[in-house]
Each structure stands twice: as C-alpha cells, then as structure tokens.
C-alpha cells in the first residue's frame, strides 16, 4: 500500500476563500492555499521556501467574525474559516501601502535595470496604483558597487528582507542583515562594510535572484535588462528541509 501523501497526524480542514470552497492541510497558511488555488494575493516579503516575515502587510485579508485584518502569510488555516481577499477596503489599503513604498525611496522605473521585471512595479499595476498622493521622501541613498559581480542600490530597496533570509536560511552564510530604525533602516553586508569586502559572502547570487526590485542586481545590466529567476528556491528549500 502506498504511503499517505501527508504526515498522518496532520488533518485536513475545509474553508471558504472568496466564496470558493477549498480544502487545505491544517499546517498550511492562507497565502499557501491561495497560491495553490490561483487566488491572487499581493505580497512583497513572502516567498515560497523562505521563513515567514509578515512585514509588507500587502497580503492582509478579512476574516469573517473578526474586526482585525490578518496577514495571509502568517495565518494558519482553520476549519470553517471564511476569508475575503479582495474587498474594496483591502484594495484601498493595498494601494495606499504601495504608494507609501513608492514615496519612501526613489523608485523611478524608467531608469531602473529591473524595469518590466520588477515585482513592485507589477504589484502597482495589479492593484491599480496610478498616482502617488503622498509626498516623496526625496532622500538620496548610497549605491554599493564594490562587489565584482553584483550591485546594491539602497534607493530601490523595499526592506522585504528576502536577501537576509535567503542568505541565512538557504545559503547559510548570513552575510546580510538590517541596521537602523524606521525609515532609516538599511540592509547591510557583514557589519555594514562594503559588499566587495565581505568575508562571508560566497557570491552565490541567491540574494540577487530573490530581490523583488532593482535593489540587488547583476553588474553590467542596463535599463530593463535585469531578469530574475527564483525557480531554484522552492526546490532547494525542500531539499534542505528533507535533510
């Protein structure tokens, strides 16, 4: 007899997301179930294969019977849940959050190497952001080109910490981390030394591939040329996990 596909002690629950009746394993999060069933949920920090972060708040959903919004990436499914992922209110909040991101740093798509392949740009289109109503912060940030293969442009960073997590959890190097507070936060390599001088960086490039914007890119790319490939991540993550 073949072994059951799931672990024997994990139960299956049924829930309703946007009027669709779905089943899910008890240990799954809402965003995983949505992705599985092709229900679009915007997110910047969540990535299949990395730990949950819950920082971008774009994946917030409404749960019937609860006033508070829940982040789909950090909420486990439960029997009988009734979830709404795309109400007018949520759309409005998501647009505002994306506007806030655009205004925080200098996301000027027309001169960005990731133009056309950028998750932030794509989300803005999907969520219908056509204006930024809040004032831009207009704060110039440095660019670190000291690494021979890659470049870090803080002006494009959305602080999703995918680079921090992939480096720590998958590559095992923990070259990246975050320093500072509030809007002054910056991702750093080692103890805030230039990337090219890092003793721990293995130059594997995983951080570049998982970065949703043009903050981490390959050297020598021009406008629109930086195309990223994240397919390796779930496969690697599962192999690491299985071991």
């Amino acid at each position: 007899m073949p072994l059951p596909a799931t672990q024997p002690n994990v139960r299956v629950v049924t829930l309703k997301i946007d009027d669709l009746d779905l089943s899910a394993r008890e240990d799954e999060t809402l965003i995983e179930v949505c992705r599985e069933n092709k229900i679009p949920i915007p997110s910047l920090c969540h990535l299949d294969g990395l730990s949950v972060w819950g920082g971008c708040r774009l994946c917030v959903v409404e749960l019937e019977g609860q006033n508070r919004l829940l982040a789909a990436c950090s909420t486990r499914v439960a029997e009988g849940m009734r979830v709404h992922t795309n109400t007018e209110r949520l759309q409005r909040y998501r647009r505002t959050l994306i506007e806030l991101l655009f205004a925080e740093r200098n996301h000027i798509c027309s001169v960005c190497v990731s133009n056309g392949h950028c998750e932030l740009q794509w989300l803005a289109q999907k969520c219908g952001v056509d204006h930024v109503r809040v004032p831009y912060r207009q704060q110039p940030y440095p660019v670190d080109s000291s690494h021979e293969m890659f470049r870090l442009d803080h002006n494009r960073c959305v602080l999703c910490t995918r680079c921090v997590r992939v480096c720590d959890e998958i590559e095992g190097a923990h070259t990246w981390d975050v320093m500072g507070r509030g809007s002054d936060c910056r991702v750093i390599t080692d103890l805030a030394r230039p990337w090219g001088e890092s003793d721990t960086c293995t130059s594997c490039g995983k951080c570049v591939q998982v970065c949703p914007t043009g903050a981490l890119v390959k050297q020598g790319t021009s406008v629109g040329e930086m195309v990223k490939d994240q397919h390796f991540l779930p496969i690697l993550a599962r192999r690491r996990h299985a071991r």
């Binding site: 920082g55 708040r57 991101l101 925080e104 004032p135 500072g180």
Partner: peptide
Amino acid sequence: CGKCIPCRTGTWQ
C-alpha cells in the same frame, strides 16, 4: 522598528 511598511513609512508621512 522599520519592519512593516505602514508603520515605517506611514508614521513618517
């Protein structure tokens, strides 16, 4: 702390 967008940039705005 700068972790989530609404608090980090919303309070600034």
